[in-house]
Design a protein around this nucleic acid. Sequence first.
RNA 1: GGGCCGUUAGCUCAGUUGGCAGAGCGCUCGCCUUUUAAGCGAGAUGUCGCAGGUUCGAUGCCUGCACGGCCUACCA
Length: 506
Amino acid sequence: MSGPDRKPGRDEKTRRRKLDEIRALGVPVWPNRYPATHTLDEVRAAFGELDALSLEETPEADRGVRVAGRVVAIRSFGKAAFLRLAERQGTLQIHVRRDILPHREFRLTRLLDLGDWIGVAGPVFRTRTDELTVRADQVTFLSKALLPLPEKWHGLTDRDTRYRQRYLDLLGNPETREVFLRRARMVSALRRFMDAEGFLEVETPMLQPLATGAAARPFQTRHRALGVDLFLRVAPELYLKRLVVGGFPRVYEINRNFRNEGLSTRHNPEFTMLEFYRAFSDCAGMMELTERLIVAAAERGAGGATVRFGEDELRFERPFDRVTLTDATVAALAGRGIALDGDALRSAGDLADIHRRLDLVLPAPPAGPGKLLLSLFEALCERELIQPTFVTGYPVEVSPLSKADPENPGFTERFELFAGGLEIANGFSELNDPDEQAARFGEQMARRQGGDEHAMDWDYIEALRHGLPPTGGVGVGVDRLAMLLTDSPAIRDVILFPHLRPREGR
RNA sequence: GGGCCGUUAGCUCAGUUGGCAGAGCGCUCGCCUUUUAAGCGAGAUGUCGCAGGUUCGAUGCCUGCACGGCCUACCA
């Protein structure tokens, strides 16, 4: 398919032959530039409102334009031809006539293939069928496509090829292009929102001596000169909070995290997170901020507060629903005829029994009641949370970086936001007591066997000992939010180059 | 890891109860100076994913493998 050993196919041989013929015309075949005066869209914007007669009477149209684009259709009549150029979002028709073009340039147009790039200069007019068209006075060859474009009107449908050769997907499928345009608008809206709220955009290490800030298996690498092992970060969290200690009270980062775990429709090994921290705020304050952020993203990314997602219609309108993790789980169990009262909620044995009764896989031991409760919630409730919903009250046991809730022993001031059955965001009042943080890390480590990559982050504890103000923090899964706002069922559909198994024999 | 489905021309796909491998687009050649998936005429597409097996004969049936998709499980 590629690489030095690949043999040119029949199409490529033909196209190389034509390239030689173009070269033989004395035309530069890989020129360095083309000074276009208009993009194709700009031609349409400037002249699209004018009818045939008005165009003739418009000096600007008669004086002409210089445009450039990829040839995506050729309808040839021997002594004349219509070409269609495509570039960015626009397309424009070109009319080529033997009696107008210089001989060499007309011959050049006969040697064009679909996919080639050309520049065209000439006046703008309308054809008999009222199509806005540039009549070619000059044709400049710009670049050769040695390989054919995807098939014309089915587009490219093979999923594997769409992901591996995304440029073909973008070329052949307008809806793919729309997904990534919307994603870009959404990310830009996130940035603008954070900037407007007075947050400073920062970048923190991707290569970290300890993979901290989330419970996930990291990728490992090695720095030769330093002679140390490093990890690709699983989260920026602890670095961002160091910055709050350092006197940046509002910081955010939009960047990649890496988790060495399975792939699924909701998981890519590298994914984009927006994380932000705000001094003097807390869980409740961050929920309010997150709400406004998500609404802004929906407005910009999806063009409104109401978003179609598969079978559902998501309404990103404030205030979002709110429910505690315990209430949601108790209600889901009640719906299955299982009563769960206060005592059972704190009993690992009872919660494990419920797993068995419902035929659910138990979390890997050791699992206390907090982890078992979360496991029930994830199994029973997550997928049902279609409308944007804040779930609050996560057990301390599964929230090592969150502040405890003074009103609710055993639980933290923490929320997760769900929509479309997906976890979109996770936020909490940041634990800033260095001694308690050290104790929590210790508990986490005690529960793990092996895994030296999860060693205690003493450097972070030291930062806390210098004083972290009360702070709220949130992480937003940018890819998943993009899934919701583009009605994409798989995370691969919103990542330009998703990870796939390497192809054999290439 | 498990289940189901798929792999045929450059692309999208059909097909054969086992008997010369097909269509549309694209491509090549010819005609055509206002077309819109242009039209007309002619032509070429190929390791039917790979390896074995059954058979007079396998793209088709059997076994194994590879690759991919969907679902599912795992990933505190």
